[in-house]
Nucleic acid binder design. Structure first.
Lengths: 344, 344
DNA sequence: AGAACGGAGCAAACCGGTTTGACTGCTCTC
DNA sequence: GAGAGCAGTCAAACCGGTTTGCTCCGTTCT
């Protein structure tokens, strides 16, 4: 019983052929007689044999695994609904391709480097880079380590982008523009923005898009607060904004968690939402639809992005097209959290 | 100069020793002269050599990786804040031990079985079983596949537990009891419970604890609704409870997301929280502290549980103690969402 | 009829580590 | 001074697959 798993040699013996033939019967890299193939498969099945992936990895130098390093503080990982959805999307694609996903959550830059080095030591074939920053060091790092990679971004890659890493991106700017348009149409002129950490490309993209949208309406974009995507920072930023003598009548938050915390804080000071203050979020978590009022947000299809990122990485691993790809899934979802501003 | 990574043979040559000596210098399984060891390390460093984990895995039949299969619908994964925190906790321990974490998100039972079979084919050494159900088939499955495992639970393992899998558990019952005590002390007598899917051991544990607590106060435990942990189910369950002619004055939810959705729904019908209705959650997500009113909840230390689960699994892999371990980190956090019931 | 060709399969080398039996000096004992 | 014991090292076997050079055989072409 149990003990050790059968090896390809056991299967070969049972089928009366050589190891090489068993391997070829499965890979099809050379013709194998139909009848032989059947004998091999039958033998494998009765022995319940599956190829050892360690041995396969050693022989082919491909691990059938891709890696994902998440470098964020635990509080943020805990509340941000992006990661789980993104990972679920990846998985759907990877599982179909027989690939595995290796995950690492790191706290420091050294840990991050160490994680990529372990990856390169024959643990994964490629990686997906999340939370890209301006002048991110990782594309260079992973290339030097010999890992294929794909980056996620919130804007089209610039022509002068220094790397040849394929980019999977959304166009967050357009969605932010739409949100601002909605608010301006409702009559708002004093609109604030609470961004994520601006070192992130995605946070900066939304931040810049907000400024551009306000400017295009000839409104001042001077109420800008940098948050960090946590509920706590959403509350603090909101407190600061509402404290001013001429408080804004609407706040555009860079994610839902900050928006919900901000909304709650505003209410606790006696303001009504949306009558006295309109708020919008970003990323449309499931909870947002079930609040009262519902939170106006931007659905970005995190799972789709995960799937596309995985697909793109698999293609890159096959040596195919390195082109960047736009994931066009951002949809503004209007709910009860916005309304015309109060009369002065 | 990319090309191929150096091998142990290159290091051996550079240091003027044999492959075996290099290996022994690193593993220390046999004595190696101090001076030789230094030469080997120096050579390895200058060649930037790291052992190939595929080769290591093949030679030792240990992969230095553990696996985690998450079998939940994407909506739930997206909102539940438990997984990310749990994983971050695991990772902290695993990284320190040089182990990797392989993650799989599956949609069906076949996919789940397939995932464990891939694991067993030399991808991971052991697995952590989450969301254990009554009569769960996985302990048996993974044992047959030759994988070491650890289970997470919300109650002490019964004596007659059919398996010898170590269990890492919290005692959710005590926390639920405390919540009920708080509400009863405030004068509530009509308290409802919205549970998670009762096939899960953790959901059932909280559900049963609720009934026991109510009974011990000689109150009827007859307002029980089974939800599924999503915001949508929290709202629906709440709608059903509040629709009754004698609506409850307090609702104990099995997680925060359902509680927040329920709270929002109640408000949208004109009820005030906590004046007209008290609500409590479970798992204490970061957001809960920043709502207004803050959500009374139970902090369960998901990250600590992750760390302990990882530690326990590593111990099991070393062949050490299979004992079950209690993670004593549940703390009831009282916030503004509960208050005495309205006078009739 | 002989050459050329391609399908089928075997045996052996290889991937990059780990493990172990055997050998060499050396020191320590009696 | 012979034997025991041990630190230190090497060479070779091994882990379980994949890949390739070569042989064997039957068919087709000229």
């Amino acid at each position: 019983m149990a003990g050790s798993r059968p090896t390809i040699g056991d299967v070969a013996r049972a089928a009366g052929v050589s190891k090489g033939t068993v391997s070829l019967a499965y890979s099809g890299k050379r013709p194998v007689a139909e009848e032989t193939r059947r004998r091999v498969f039958a033998a494998a099945e009765s022995l319940r044999w599956t190829a050892s992936s360690s041995a396969q990895a050693l022989a082919t130098s491909r691990t059938s695994t891709i890696g994902l390093v998440i470098a964020r503080r635990p509080e943020i990982i805990a509340t941000d609904t992006f990661f789980p959805r993104f990972i679920a999307g990846c998985e759907a694609v990877l599982a179909r391709a027989g690939m595995g996903l290796m995950l690492n959550v790191v706290a420091s830059e050294e840990d991050e480097t160490a994680a990529y080095e372990r990856y390169a030591a024959g643990r994964v074939d490629g990686v997906i880079l999340l939370d890209v920053q301006q002048g991110d060091r990782r594309p260079k790092l992973v290339r030097e380590l010999g890992l294929t990679s794909v980056m996620l971004s919130a804007e089209a890659p610039r022509d002068d982008s220094p790397t040849d890493v394929p980019v999977v991106y959304t166009e967050d700017a357009a969605a932010i523009g739409e949100l601002v348009d909605l608010l301006v149409e409702d009559g708002h002129t004093s609109i604030a923005h609470v961004s994520g950490p601006l070192r992130y490309v995605h946070a900066a993209a939304r931040h810049n898009a907000f400024i551009a949208a306000m400017t295009s309406h000839e409104l001042p974009a001077d109420r800008l607060v940098e948050g960090d995507f946590t509920a706590a920072s959403g509350r603090d930023a909101t407190a600061g904004l509402l404290d001013a003598s001429d408080r804004p009548t609407a706040i555009v938050y860079a994610n839902d968690v900050m928006a919900i915390a901000g909304l709650s804080f505003a209410r606790s000071t006696g303001l009504r939402v949306p009558e006295d203050l309109s708020v919008t979020g970003f990323d449309d978590s499931e909870l947002s639809a079930h609040l009262s009022p519902g939170l106006t947000s931007v659905s970005t299809g995190a799972d789709v992005r995960g799937a596309v990122a995985a697909d793109t990485l698999l293609a890159a691993l096959r040596g195919e097209a390195d082109a960047s790809v736009l994931v066009d899934g951002t949809v503004v979802v209007r709910r009860g959290s916005i309304a015309p501003p109060p009369r002065p």
